[in-house]
Design a protein around this nucleic acid. Structure first.
Length: 426
RNA sequence: GUGGGUGUAGCUCAGUCGGUAGAGCACUGGAUUGUGGCUCCAGUUGUCGAGGGUUCGAUCCCCUUCACUCACCCCA
């Protein structure tokens, strides 16, 4: 039996890497435009970090973490999300001492032991953003604007922005109790999952997919009606700024977050093109988290995007591979050696060149050049070499010309840079 | 953790009412002694997911198992 990869952990193969690089490149470009700086934190942290930040009773902490002991007996965990490590670093490195506002982004693999399905894997990748130190609703709106900007930049428009407010530690407990009271005499109408949720996470019942549960809760109290003055004002201002920025959104009072640290503004970028894993990006405000982790009492807000889900939506055959400018076809060993040197010289000049390594028929080499989509093929034939010449074939026009071997590199570089100015139709 | 679906060539799949397999694409070569994309011709590729059972004989039937996949759950 061959050694196989691990369930739910995928290889990202050359054929799909162009999409990944594109999505990452656009993230770097846009986030930096908005003043965010990249931060890279380890993939492994002390287990305690995630227990304290995500919440001891969440599914992530209770049953989905890759936790193990290292050789000194420390309990370590592969990060299941990116916010906690970034905040840990922020506190530990005292980034707040240098600048009261920190705008950070990160990208990389996360790990959760879940049953894999479409858009959900055990090693998955997130691109995330954290803005720390600002409680003004302007930053909420700006984060959302940046998120929308990203989606339009990468050409994914089949998404909808949903926003909500979860209140704060002042107003949420009262709402939670009001909801529990409401559900008390309706428990019989709820699905078995929701009966369980009524004990563990009553807010979750609001976005249960079972129609009966939706019907049973149509008149349920809304968090938005129970926000305290500060939270209600904050949410109103966020919506106002979004309108000012012409960002369309849907208020979804039933949207809940899976991690305990969220407060006030929460949001999701959802789609119906991914099956059941419909959130392609999600986030929210986490005003208590930094203090909870032993740092200064600073507010924060952020989001994470699931890269696999972005890739699924973007597709991997959209981005055509850049065509090859030049392919070298050589006939005979001396010509092949010559071509090899020429290829190396041109590559050092920054030109992308390919050749056939084995000695094969010209037909086979031309076929290979065609497969690369080569713009030009340089044929180093034995007869021409004897005359100190080579043939340059224009693959689009089907024409060819002889070039002198002397000064060939300069001629090629000149010709190819001209061809680049006026790209022919593929 | 629970439930459904699927495992046959590198890929997408067909097939054998049980007699150890085929198509298209891809790949290689040829038609053009040294010229790609179109066309035509030829060729190569399989432990028929694994283990066991029934049988003269199993890729096909039965059992077990593993893998993949979708959904529940959960979430990016």
């Amino acid at each position: 039996m061959n050694i196989t990869g691990i369930k739910g952990m995928n290889d990202i193969l050359p054929g799909e890497i162009a999409t990944w690089q594109f999505l990452e490149r656009e993230a770097h470009r846009i986030f930096q435009t908005y003043g965010f700086a990249e931060i890279r934190v380890p993939v492994v942290e002390k287990t305690e970090l995630f227990c304290r930040s995500i919440g001891e009773t969440t599914d992530i902490v209770e049953k989905e973490m890759y936790t193990f002991s290292d050789k000194s007996g420390n309990s370590l965990t592969l990060r299941p999300e990116g916010t906690a490590p970034v905040i840990r670093s922020f506190i530990e490195k005292k980034l707040h001492a240098q600048d009261p506002v920190a705008k950070l982004y990160y990208l990389g693999p996360m790990f959760r032991y879940e049953r894999p399905q479409k858009g959900r894997y055990r090693q998955f990748h997130q691109i995330g953003v954290e803005a720390i130190g600002v409680d003004d609703p302007k930053i909420d709106a700006q984060i959302l604007a940046m998120l929308c900007d990203y989606f339009s930049a990468v050409g994914i428009d089949d998404v909808e922005l949903h926003i909500n407010s979860l209140g704060c530690k002042e107003c949420r407990p009262a709402y939670r109790q009001a909801l529990i009271d409401y559900l008390q005499d309706r428990l019989g109408n709820l699905c078995s999952d929701c009966q369980r949720r009524s004990q563990t996470n009553p807010l979750r019942i609001l976005d249960c997919k079972v129609p009966a549960c939706q019907e049973a809760t149509v008149t349920a109290p809304s968090m938005l009606d129970h926000l305290c003055g500060g939270c209600a004002d904050h949410f109103t201002q966020v919506k106002g700024y979004l309108q000012g920025l012409a960002i369309s959104y849907t208020v979804n009072a039933r949207m809940v977050r899976g991690l305990d640290y969220y407060s006030k503004t929460t949001f999701e970028m959802v789609t119906d093109s991914l099956g059941s894993q419909n959130a392609v990006a999600a986030g929210g405000r986490y005003d208590g988290l930094i203090a909870d982790l032993g740092g200064p009492a600073l507010p924060g807000i952020g989001f994470a995007m699931g890269v696999e889900r972005l890739v699924l939506m973007k597709g991997t055959d959209q981005l055509a591979a850049e065509r090859l400018p030049l392919f070298l076809a050589a006939l005979g060993q001396p010509a092949s050696d010559r071509a090899f040197l020429l290829m190396a010289t041109l590559q050092r000049q920054g030109l992308r060149v390919e050749m056939e390594y084995a000695t094969k028929s010209l037909k086979a080499q031309m076929r290979r050049a065609g497969k690369f989509g080569a713009r030009y093929v340089l044929i180093l034939g034995e007869e021409e070499l004897a005359r100190q010449m080579v043939i340059l074939r224009d693959m689009d026009a089907g024409t060819q010309q002889e070039l002198a071997l002397e000064g060939l590199e300069e001629q090629l570089l000149k010709l190819l840079s001209e061809a680049e100015q006026t790209p022919a139709a593929g």
